[in-house]
Simulated scan of single mutants.
Amino acid sequence: MAFHSTKTGQFAYFDTQLGRPDWSGRRVLDFGGNIGTFLEGAAGRVEPSLYWCVDVSRPAIEEGRRREPEAHWVFYDRYNPQFNPGGLRGLALPDLETRFDYVLAYSVFTHTPDDETVELVDALRSTLTDDGMLAFTFIAPGWVPPGEGQQPNVRWRLSSRSLGNAAVPPSVPAHMDAVVERAREAPWCAVVDQSLLFDARAPVGPCGRYDVLWSPDHARSLFPFAEVRPPAAPERQHCCLIGPED
């Protein structure tokens, strides 16, 4: 599928969550980085030659390579029900032949089943340097941004149709209120097209939309060794920070 994301702010988000580190000379793996807007947002603080982007969208990788030819661009032909339904199920992470100071995944495991997320996080941890850090985001269904009139995340995701660069937010039908309230309290739920799913073990076939939401407690149950941090404004996504394997 041709999916080019022009979302910006990923660098600022991770810079905040990681405590504003010195990025100079650091090797960065942007897992699911699409066309590499992270690198653009870094505004020179991350060297292109020390930046790797891995993504399941071949057109995005090709566009990223066109924009930043000094960086490293790797197509990962793994199945994803939304972004690469023609990919190979369970395909191993490519061997990138290097270790990374930072491995980052913004809004990647928000579109991935739990069993695959655990597998991929384990594989990504193995690519860290001895003092490296893996940081990835998740969306908590009941979290509400500060400010009057804000929607909880699950209602926001259900009412948003943001694929690519288009955003057409229809209202959530009144008859969905009860199920949305249930989802706010759920440890796990998923928006599959315009429906809500509550069984993390249920298989999901190719679809136009697959958004996974976790509570912070569910994130901790999957990754008890992680530090879970709240969203960094203006983002809605929590962050898991995980060090290298012992």
Results as ranks from 00 to 15, higher is better:
residue 2 A to L: 03
residue 7 K to Q: 15
residue 9 G to L: 09
residue 11 F to D: 05
residue 11 F to L: 12
residue 13 Y to F: 14
residue 17 Q to S: 13
residue 23 W to D: 08
residue 27 R to W: 13
residue 28 V to P: 14
residue 34 N to L: 10
residue 37 T to L: 13
residue 38 F to Q: 05
residue 40 E to S: 14
residue 41 G to C: 15
residue 42 A to C: 13
residue 42 A to R: 05
residue 44 G to Q: 09
residue 48 P to S: 07
residue 50 L to G: 04
residue 50 L to W: 00
residue 50 L to H: 06
residue 53 C to S: 10
residue 54 V to Y: 03
residue 55 D to N: 11
residue 59 P to N: 07
residue 60 A to F: 05
residue 61 I to E: 04
residue 61 I to S: 13
residue 61 I to F: 08
residue 62 E to H: 04
residue 63 E to H: 12
residue 65 R to L: 03
residue 67 R to V: 06
residue 67 R to E: 05
residue 67 R to W: 07
residue 69 P to F: 00
residue 76 Y to Q: 14
residue 77 D to H: 15
residue 81 P to H: 01
residue 82 Q to P: 09
residue 87 G to F: 11
residue 93 L to Y: 07
residue 96 L to R: 04
residue 96 L to K: 13
residue 99 R to H: 13
residue 102 Y to D: 09
residue 108 V to Y: 01
residue 114 D to E: 14
residue 119 E to Y: 06
residue 121 V to D: 04
residue 121 V to W: 01
residue 122 D to R: 11
residue 129 T to F: 02
residue 133 M to Y: 00
residue 136 F to W: 12
residue 137 T to N: 06
residue 138 F to W: 04
residue 141 P to A: 05
residue 146 P to Y: 00
residue 148 E to N: 02
residue 150 Q to K: 09
residue 151 Q to D: 09
residue 153 N to C: 15
residue 158 L to A: 10
residue 164 G to A: 05
residue 165 N to P: 12
residue 167 A to M: 06
residue 168 V to G: 01
residue 173 P to M: 10
residue 174 A to Q: 09
residue 175 H to M: 10
residue 180 V to Y: 01
residue 184 R to H: 03
residue 188 W to V: 07
residue 190 A to I: 09
residue 193 D to Q: 11
residue 195 S to K: 07
residue 196 L to N: 12
residue 197 L to T: 08
residue 203 P to S: 12
residue 204 V to G: 04
residue 208 G to L: 03
residue 219 A to R: 03
residue 221 S to H: 01
residue 221 S to V: 03
residue 224 P to I: 08
residue 225 F to I: 13
residue 226 A to C: 11
residue 228 V to S: 04
residue 229 R to F: 02
residue 229 R to V: 15
residue 230 P to A: 13
residue 232 A to C: 07
residue 234 P to R: 00
residue 239 C to S: 05
residue 240 C to N: 03
residue 242 I to Q: 02
residue 245 E to V: 14
